[in-house]
Design a protein around this nucleic acid. Structure first.
Lengths: 218, 218
DNA sequence: AAATTATGGATATTAACACTATCCGAGAGT
DNA sequence: ACTCTCGGATAGTGTTAATATCCATAATTT
């Protein structure tokens, strides 16, 4: 398969494919002649993965490069998992965070076992700081309830991972789950927010077209 | 308060404050003379909100502008909520999505009441499409379990909202909850993932420094 | 009061990012 | 033989979020 075909098979423009190859995101095809190369099914799959990570997962090209490299490496699964987490998280320096916020996160998650460098721990502390800086306070255990929801999701993640066999398949699932999981949860939360508030307030969100709800369609 | 003081109080550089004012994100100070203006506490609060939305919530300046405008407007709460959801979501066109994926999301969320245009519904369908395009399949109800977790979070969101009184306070909470909620959940999920996998696999994630876990510190 | 510093507003510049377009000389297709 | 297409290199585009610089006043120090 030549590049035009690869482009057609994935919907990614040729110029973009070349760009990904240059960026080290995608392997170049097998060169048969100085100016001919051949691409296979693996390239199609990889390109789909790249597009998913970038478009749906919102990763940068550099971030995608890192997680793909981790999948292809022979690092143990736990390390790939760490790389995936770090890559999707902003780089936060423990010293730039409010120690009190960190303590409160640790207290909130007491019983959980994680490293002090876990990107989620640091990011959660930053959210707590920002939340309070804008004058909000957690009156009804908002953080605690989010932690419970996060635990459910994490259990689902690990269960799903266990259906895969072999290091590479598992590594791929870890990366996809880490990246797309954020997008999936965010999406479902929005639907759930509308659902819950329509129940709670019995005020249609957009009265003028409430006849078009999904429920009403069926 | 003059600009230097405002800058000092919030940690935001003067040039950046000027940029936000130009962008319509922040109101200019009260002008006393052609080249003098005075800023108050409201400016400090607003600036903190802006920084939270941008830095922690990952919004663009334009997106922040839209949600702030929604807070300041006198639109009904439901409309502000809609704007917040749309603003944090990628603009997706129903016609660009796989109808089969949309149906499966609706089936997954049957019993939920939401509009067919809900940004979360569309985003979830896109995630489903991407998930399957990279060769994954949802073997253990991953999506379903995420939906349950999302429901818990949404209930927490609405409960938290009900502690606030008055349209503007509620509108602000809606926006902050919508924006920071994504970041919070993503963060807590990462911590939970490490927790669950350490339980499940009994393999320390980073053997060389497992003595530094949060649990061990206490 | 003179000298220095700071102010608000306008304009310009920077840096990162993700593409996208154009050239090129060398094969492939017909 | 003639056009099309290839891969690879280089340059250019559009967007975004700041930063930097200028300038004519004002405020502040001395």
């Amino acid at each position: 398969m030549k590049m035009a075909k690869l482009s057609e098979a994935t919907g990614v423009p040729v110029a973009t494919i070349k760009f990904y190859i240059r960026a080290g995101l995608l392997q170049g095809g097998e060169r048969s002649l100085p100016n001919q190369a051949d691409y296979g099914d693996a390239h199609v799959q990889r390109l789909r993965l790249i597009r998913g990570l970038i478009e749906v997962g919102g990763l940068t090209v550099a971030a995608s490069q890192r997680v793909i490299e981790a999948i292809d490496s022979d690092k143990p699964l736990a390390e790939t998992f760490e790389i995936a987490q770090q890559t999707v998280s902003d780089e936060l320096d423990q010293s730039s965070l409010d120690p009190a916020a960190l303590s409160r996160i640790d207290e909130l998650l007491s019983g959980w076992h994680y490293h002090s460098t876990n990107p989620g721990r640091l990011a959660a502390a930053r959210v707590l700081t920002a939340f309070e800086a804008v004058g909000q306070h957690d009156e009804r255990g908002w953080f605690k309830r989010y932690a419970e929801a996060a635990l459910l999701a994490a259990e689902a993640d690990v269960d799903e991972l266990e259906t895969r066999h072999g290091r590479e398949a598992q590594a791929e699932t870890v990366v996809i789950g880490t990246v797309l999981g954020d997008a999936l949860f965010a999406a479902l939360r929005r639907a759930a927010q509308e659902h819950v508030s329509s129940l709670r307030f019995s005020t249609p969100l957009t009265p003028e077209n409430s006849a078009e709800t999904v429920e009403d369609r069926s």
